[in-house]
């Protein structure tokens, strides 16, 4: 019995010794973050005050495809026209760039947290005075 145990241990050791470190890292590679789909606002804060239940945000939707977005504006947002977008890093995005047809680029901090098993996008911006900061939390509709 003792011999079998020793033999098993050695076998496992030999098997693992054949693995390259890169192989392990390969399996743990961070996935590419995809935000394609239509997103709605589930939380909105202005200068620290929660406006979610005080203002009708239900009419706003933004749809991301591979490289373009369509925005259905009925609330203040960083862009008012449809256009293209990209993330600064497909695996570890910290910035999102909105580019409008008139060649304006808006750069925003990009947060992509998982809350209760659901991915959210959190964007903070100032559509009016720069002293007024708005943080919208988006959740995918479909």
């Amino acid at each position: 019995m003792k011999l079998i145990k020793i033999f098993s241990f050695l076998l496992v050791l030999i098997l693992f010794s054949n693995c390259h470190r890169e192989d392990f890292l390969q399996h743990n590679r961070e996935s590419v973050k995809s935000i394609t789909g239509t997103w709605k606002i589930i939380n909105a804060v202005r200068n620290g005050t929660d406006l979610t239940d005080r203002f009708d945000f239900s009419r706003f939707k933004i749809t991301f495809s591979d490289s373009s977005y369509i925005v259905d504006n009925s609330v203040p947002f960083i862009v008012t026209q449809n256009g293209t977008y990209h993330l600064d890093d497909p695996q570890y995005p910290f910035k999102i760039y909105f580019e409008t047809p008139d060649n304006f680029t808006k750069e925003l901090d990009f947060k992509y947290p998982t809350t209760n098993g659901v991915r959210n996008i959190v964007l903070t911006f100032s559509p009016g005075c720069s002293s007024n900061s708005y943080t919208y939390t988006f959740q995918k509709i479909n």
């Binding site: 202005r46 200068n47 005050t49 406006l51 005080r54 203040p76 009016g128 005075c129 007024n132």
Partner: peptide
């Protein structure tokens, strides 16, 4: 009025 300073593209209370 809140915020004290705003533009027409803000949400004003």
């Amino acid at each position: 009025v809140d915020p004290l300073n705003s533009l027409d593209n803000d949400i004003v209370t």
